[in-house]
Simulated scan of single mutants.
Amino acid sequence: MTSQLNVLIVDDDPLIREMMIDILEFEGYRLRTARNGEEALQVLLGEERYVVFLDLMMPVMDGSTLCRRLAAQPELRRRHRIILMSAMDRLAGASPLQADGLMPKPFSVEDVLQALAPFHSLSP
């Protein structure tokens, strides 16, 4: 399967990033990675649209702060779709962040692919 979706994986844990890369490269997604919200913001300021797998707990800039920064710039927020990923107890408090999806950690291949399924109609 080849997808036209651009996916940004934002997580400070290199093992999580590598697992996500392995899953999504196999499925044909175009990928970028970032280690924290600050690096992610630099990617998201560009012209491309992304579906973003965003960890909530990271150094430098966490996922909650990145969501608030994007919400403050409506043109950015409309361009990108955010899937928050974290332990279930942290995801329970994520509703004010206006995420487009949630994915618990740990995750399976099916969890990742199901999280992306609603976004396949988006243009790159």
Rank of each mutant, 00 (worst) to 15 (best):
T2D: 01
T2H: 11
T2L: 09
Q4A: 15
L5D: 04
N6F: 06
V7F: 09
V10L: 07
D11Y: 12
P14K: 01
R17Q: 14
E18N: 05
I21M: 12
I23E: 12
E27K: 02
L31E: 08
T33E: 14
R35G: 13
R35Q: 14
E39C: 07
Q42N: 13
Q42E: 14
E47I: 00
Y50P: 00
V52P: 05
V52H: 10
F53N: 08
L56G: 01
P59A: 10
M61S: 04
D62M: 14
D62L: 11
G63D: 07
G63Q: 05
G63N: 05
G63K: 03
S64V: 00
C67H: 09
A71Y: 07
A71V: 00
A71L: 14
A72D: 10
A72E: 12
R77E: 02
R77I: 00
R78Q: 10
R78S: 10
R78F: 00
R78V: 03
H80S: 02
L84R: 03
M88S: 15
M88E: 15
D89Q: 15
G93A: 11
G93E: 15
G93Q: 03
G93M: 08
A94P: 02
P96R: 06
L97C: 12
Q98M: 14
Q98K: 13
Q98I: 00
Q98F: 13
Q98E: 14
A99T: 06
D100W: 03
D100N: 05
G101Q: 07
G101S: 11
M103V: 03
P106Q: 02
S108Y: 06
S108H: 08
E110L: 13
E110K: 12
E110A: 14
D111A: 11
A115F: 11
L116D: 05
P118I: 07
H120C: 09
